[in-house]
Computed example of a mutant assay.
Amino acid sequence: MDGRGDVQRGDAAERLVAESTAAHLLVVGSHGLDESGARLEFGSTAEAAIALAACPVAVVRESRGPGRDGGIVVGVDSAGVADHALRWALHEAGLRGVPLLAVHTWREVAAEDWNDLTSDISDPDRERDAHRLLAERLAGATERFPDVELHRSVEHDRPVRALLAHAARAELLVIGSRGHAGFTGMLLGSTSRALAHCAPCPLLVVRPPA
């Protein structure tokens, strides 16, 4: 594998975002420093990278917790934002020779239901819809990636909590993210942001191609 190094002047986040326009993947560490030099668990450079980079971004942090024997985990949403992330996850699982777990949650509550205390109770129809949606998102995956051991999980839970539980032993967590609108209009979803800050394993953030 060919490699090269480069030293550049300027703000690290701005330079990395600029370089990402011609990159296949941008890899950053999760830690940073505040103005006093104190260590931050999640730095501004990583924050800017996942919000603004033109290519997928891998956020790598120090290993936490038990061994990483859980393969790869990918979050699958209901709006199709994670479709490109799913393809990345399947490709990575094939390269590494590890199983892939696709996770979809269905506890999303509509705004008009917030005052309805029964809206969070398990609904068989919604659960069936969630299983059907995940099956549709995964349709053709086995044929395109026959060597990947693919598992699926539909859960009555919030996306961040469900994905963090599975990421506890995973070697990689893959999620989708919406597009960006420059430094003045970051569009990083709450799920992506939360997982970037607290995922216990390396995180790959993939947004749809421009």
Results as ranks from 00 to 15, higher is better:
Met1Trp: 00
Asp2Glu: 08
Arg9Lys: 09
Gly10Thr: 12
Asp11Cys: 10
Arg15Ile: 13
Ser20Cys: 12
Ser20Asn: 12
Ala22Val: 01
Ala23Gln: 09
Ala23Trp: 08
Leu26Ser: 05
Val28Cys: 09
Gly29His: 06
Asp34Glu: 10
Ala38Arg: 15
Arg39Asp: 07
Phe42Arg: 01
Glu47Gly: 08
Ala49Asp: 04
Ile50Ala: 05
Ala54Arg: 15
Ala54Gly: 13
Val59Ser: 05
Val60Ser: 03
Arg64His: 05
Gly67Leu: 02
Val74Glu: 11
Asp83Phe: 05
His84Thr: 14
Ala93Glu: 11
Pro99His: 13
His104Glu: 12
Trp106Asn: 08
Arg107Met: 08
Ala111Asn: 00
Asp113Gln: 11
Asp116Phe: 00
Asp120Phe: 01
Asp125Thr: 07
Glu127Phe: 00
Asp129Val: 00
His131Gly: 06
Ala135Tyr: 02
Arg137Thr: 01
Ala139His: 15
Ala141Leu: 09
Phe145Asn: 05
Asp147Cys: 00
Leu150Ile: 15
His151Tyr: 12
Arg152Asn: 03
Val154Pro: 11
Val154Arg: 05
Glu155Gln: 15
Asp157Phe: 03
Asp157Glu: 15
Ala167Tyr: 04
Ala167Phe: 09
Ala168Val: 08
Ala170Ser: 12
Leu173Gly: 04
Arg178Phe: 11
Thr184Ser: 14
Gly185Cys: 09
Gly185Leu: 06
Met186Cys: 01
Met186Thr: 13
Thr191Arg: 02
Thr191Lys: 02
Ala199His: 05
Pro202Arg: 03
Pro202Trp: 04
Leu203Lys: 03
Val206Phe: 06
Ala210Val: 10
